[in-house]
Structure formats: structure tokens, C-alpha cells
Write a protein that binds this DNA or RNA. Structure first.
Lengths: 206, 206
DNA sequence: GTAATTTATGTCAGTCCCTGACAGATGACA
DNA sequence: TGTCATCTGTCAGGGACTGACATAAATTAC
């Protein structure tokens, strides 16, 4: 990796870190990109060369998670029933996040980012929209596995139900700070969801 | 109703109507509030006295629906099981919308507004956020009916599952224009949802 | 019907987000 | 070292939105 690329990576990370420091102390709306740029000693114009908008910076880290969960589902064996595959994919995803966050300062960073997003309506709205986009991707994968046509409501319904459970588990753990508790809550919500659905998701596959 | 109030109501409606006409022809982002204000022969500053933002105008009509569905749930008999009450509330809501839209130009207006929202990521995101807020309200009502403490995941999970079904039903009918088809699709999704959940939602109430 | 009061509107100045265009600085590479 | 690609800063400007003040209109009191 050349000097140029390292420099770019450094300023990018500096923008994210100092931005979130300001977001936490002043709030998202109250901090201007001029402030962020000044703190990193970069022109405001450069800020927008790294991020399309202030919002994009705040939501940047979610992109990684989106890709990870879709990859987790794609990696499940093809003959696994959809509900089981979805639940397993989410469990892997949660476990990976917890294990990763166990040691490093990723834990602190994750909590900080989620707090900022939850505190701002616009950011919250955008994160919901991202969730919807992920749902759409997962639905397509489930439909592929079932051999269902695009008009079939069942894949999207199944994904929506499981995602709803995940979302509830997440948000119930939002107030607490430890990703360990978060994992437990999501696990609990997933269990409830699986128990609430008819065994084997037969009503979906038949 | 005095002259003053009638006048206000008229300009408000004029702003909404001409705004959506412009949104449909030019797109949401491409139309400026200066354009809208000029078309209604009102200063841009006045626009912002009627609506806090361009987005608020575009999402204005959803507020009515939000109130209606929460009211529908509150009106269900207290001894009705939560799942049945939720499904019934949504069915009433959908039926009312269809019946109302049958005759008047409300049909055309509804379709126009949904199209505009679906075409713009920011509006879509905000409408998702509103859904989440409604979900929270419905969850509180379900929790009240069950006598469950706020920490209990089950009310929110139940509401999230039913809402997911509704959402899928809605979005599957988005491409079609008739609210009659929309009602049918939502009905279908609700049926699937009820069938998929264990009978009587026993796993939630026990 | 007129005066006093309340309220809606217009004008103006200003902040903030974001973008295109151009010019200068800085690594990459031969 | 010199050429080249790329990154960055500066500048100008559009569009969303807000506060402050003045004017015009409607409501109310008399």
C-alpha cells in the first residue's frame, strides 16, 4: 500500500473519529461539517470528497454489517429450510459481532455509533431504510432457495418476520451498553420468533 | 369557522396539491420550495410557516393514517386476544381506506402520494421511521392489554410481526394502482401471517 | 363603525449543506 | 529529474431553513 493510499485511509478514519466525538458531545445536527473539517485540518470541500454527506459518514459503518448478514445467509447449505437458514445466519452474525467486540475498542465504537444514530430522527430513518434494503436482498435469496416467483409474498413475509424479531431484540438492548447483553436479547427474540411460528415453517413452504 | 381559518386551510391545501403536481412531473428533489411558493403565490417564508420542511409536506397525509390505526386498535374489545385484535384493527383500517377511496378522488391522491414517496429514498426512509413510531405506540397498547411490563419483548415482537405482514402486503401492491388490489394483497398477507403463527398466539400470552 | 388587539404574511439577512470549476500541491512512476 | 495522475484548497453559487422586524389583514371590544 502506497503512501498516498495510507494517507487517504488515515484522513478518512480521522474524519469519522473526530466527527463522532463531536456528535457525542454536541449532537449530530449541532456539529457542522466545517467544524469536523477544521478539527481534522482539512478543507470542507475535501470532507465531501470522502463522504457524500454528513449522514453518509454517520451511517458508514452499517454498510459493513449489511454485507456480512447477506453473506452469512448465502453461505448456509442450500437444502436448509429458509427459516432455519435465516435464524442460523443471524446467530452467526451476532456471535461474530460479540466475539470481535470482546477484546478491541470496537465495542466502544459500536456503542457510540448506535447512540448517535438513535438520538437523531433523520439518521434513524435512514438506518430503517437500509434495513429495508437488506430485507429485500435476503428475500431474493430465500425466494431463490424456494424456487418461488417474484410475485410470491412468502419469502418477503418470512424475512420480514425474522427481521422484525431481530430488530426488537436489538432495540430492547439499546439502552444497555454491553454487546454481550445485546447478543442475549437478540437470541431471546429469535427464540420467541421461532417458537411463535408454526414448526418447520411448513405454512410457508407448502 | 372564520374567514381567517378558511383562508389558511385553502392555502395549506393549495400548497400540498401544487407541490405534488410538481413532484410528479419533476421529482421531489428537483422541485424547489421557491417554485411551490411561487405557484401558490405565497412567499417562501410562508411555506415554512405551514410546513416545517419540504419533507413534512410530502409526508403530511401519513399522519392521518397513523392516528387511525392506533385508534382502531384502542377500539377493539379489551378481552380480545392481541393477535386477533391487531389483525381486526388492520382489517378495519384497510376496509375504511378502500371504501373511502372507492368513490372520491382520494384514490388518485393516495396513489400519487405513495408513488412520490416510493420514488425518493429520503421520503421512503422517513416513512419507515414513522412506521416504527406507530409500532411503538401499538406495542404499548398490546402491553397494556397483556399487563406486561415494559421490559417484556413479546408485545413488541407480536406487533412487529403483524406490521411486517402489513408492510409486505402493501409493498407487493405498490406497482399496481388500484386500492382494491391493495386491500386484497394486505388481506392475503394477513392471512398468511395468522396461519404462520401458532394458533391463538398462545406462545405469546403464556 | 371605529379603535385596539391578535395573527398571518412579506422582506431581509444569515447559516448550513452540498456541488461544479479551476488552480495549485503532492505522491507515483519512468 | 521530469512527467503524469490524483488529491486538495479556494471560490462562487444554489437550495433548505431560521430569526427578526415591519406590514397587512382579520378578530374582538367598545
Amino acid at each position: 500500500m502506497g503512501l498516498r493510499e495510507r494517507k487517504k485511509h488515515r484522513t478518512r478514519q480521522a474524519l469519522i473519529d473526530t466527527a463522532f466525538d463531536l456528535f457525542v458531545t454536541q449532537g449530530f445536527e449541532a456539529t457542522t461539517v466545517d467544524q469536523i473539517a477544521a478539527a481534522v485540518e482539512v478543507s470542507p470541500r475535501t470532507f465531501f470528497r470522502y463522504f457524500g454527506s454528513k449522514e453518509e459518514l454517520a451511517l458508514d459503518f452499517t454498510a459493513e454489517y449489511d454485507e456480512r448478514i447477506t453473506a452469512a445467509l448465502a453461505a448456509r447449505p442450500a437444502d436448509e429450510p429458509p427459516l432455519a437458514a435465516l435464524a442460523a445466519a443471524y446467530r452467526e452474525f451476532i456471535r461474530a459481532m460479540r466475539d470481535k467486540g470482546d477484546s478491541a475498542e470496537d465495542t466502544e465504537r459500536f456503542v457510540k455509533h448506535r447512540r448517535v444514530i438513535d438520538a437523531n430522527p433523520a439518521l434513524l430513518a435512514s438506518s430503517f431504510a437500509r434495513m429495508a434494503a437488506v430485507e429485500e436482498k435476503l428475500s431474493q435469496e430465500v425466494a431463490r432457495r424456494l424456487g418461488a416467483p417474484p410475485s410470491d409474498l412468502r419469502p418477503r413475509l418470512l424475512v420480514a418476520l425474522v427481521n422484525a424479531a431481530i430488530r426488537v431484540g436489538f432495540s430492547s438492548a439499546v439502552d444497555e451498553n454491553s454487546p454481550r447483553d445485546l447478543a442475549a436479547d437478540v437470541e431471546r427474540a429469535l427464540d420467541l420468533c421461532e417458537k411463535a411460528l408454526t414448526p418447520g415453517a411448513d405454512s410457508f413452504t407448502s
